[in-house]
Design a protein around this nucleic acid. Structure first.
Lengths: 115, 115
DNA sequence: CAATTGCGCAATAAAAAGGTTGCATGTCTG
DNA sequence: CAGACATGCAACCTTTTTATTGCGCAATTG
C-alpha cells in the first residue's frame, strides 16, 4: 500500500521526534560537531572547552546514545564515543519530506482554489 | 575568511539548536505535517484529531512561532497558521554538514593514522 | 605501590516543559 | 441583539531536564 506524503509524515513523527529532541540542545550539537572530527573520543576529551562538569557532559552523551546518535565502547578506563549515521539519516529524511511538501504547496493551493 | 566544516558546525550550533528543540516533540511534528497540506489553518482546525485542549495546541504553535517555523495572521476571529521554510532550511543545512563530515570520516581517520 | 585519571552512580536542587482549568474578549450568525 | 465560536491570557500543577556535589572503583603512571 502507498501513503500520501502527509500521512507518511504523521507516521514518522513518533519515531523522529526523539531524535530532534536530542539534537535540540547546543551543548549536544557541539558534542556532535566534535565527534565529526574522525576518531572516537573519550568523555574527558569531549569535555575540553565546555563550561560544564564531566558528569553533565556524560549525561548529554547518554541522551545522544539513547536515540542511537552515538555509541560508546569501553577501552581501558575510558569510554570512547563515536557518531552513528542512522538517526541523522532519519532526521534528514523527515526534513526532506517537509521540504518536498513545502515546495509543492503553491500547486496544492492552486488546486484547492480551483476546485 | 574560510572555516573548517567542524568550526562552522560549532558556530551554527547555537542558532540551530532551538529549531531542533522545537521539532523535538511529536505533537509539534504532527502540527507541521498538517500545515504542509497547503492552506493556512486555524487553531481549531489544527486541533482536529489531537487528544489535547486547544490551549495546549496553541502553546505548541507559539513554540513553533518563536523559532519562526510558523507564522500566524489574524483573520476575523481566527488565527491562521502557516509554515515557513527558513528554519527548516537551516536545520537541513546543519544535518547536511554533519552528514558530509560523516561521509569523510574514513578518509580523515586514515590521514590521522598515517600522520 | 601510591597517586592520579576517567568514569559510573546516586542524591539533590533549580528551572523548563507540557497540560489543564477558568475567565475575558472580540467576532460571527440567526 | 443573544448565543455560539475562536482565541488570548493567567494561574497552577506535574513531570522532565539540566547541572552540581559527593562517593567509590578500576585502570594508568611515576
Amino acid at each position: 500500500m502507498s501513503f500520501s506524503p502527509a500521512t507518511r509524515l504523521r507516521r514518522q513523527s513518533a519515531k523522529t521526534a526523539p531524535v530532534f529532541a536530542a539534537l535540540g540542545d547546543s551543548t549536544r550539537l557541539g558534542l556532535i560537531a566534535k565527534l565529526t572530527n574522525g576518531a572516537p573520543q573519550s568523555i574527558a576529551a569531549l569535555c575540553d572547552g565546555e563550561p560544564l562538569t564531566w558528569q553533565a557532559i556524560s549525561k548529554h552523551l547518554r541522551v545522544l546514545e539513547e536515540v542511537d546518535l552515538v555509541s560508546s565502547v569501553r577501552h581501558g578506563r575510558e569510554s570512547l564515543y563515536s557518531l552513528n549515521s542512522g538517526p541523522i539519516d532519519l532526521a534528514r529524511a523527515y526534513i526532506d519530506l517537509v521540504s518536498a511538501q513545502w515546495d509543492g504547496r503553491i500547486e496544492r493551493l492552486k488546486a484547492l482554489v480551483e476546485r
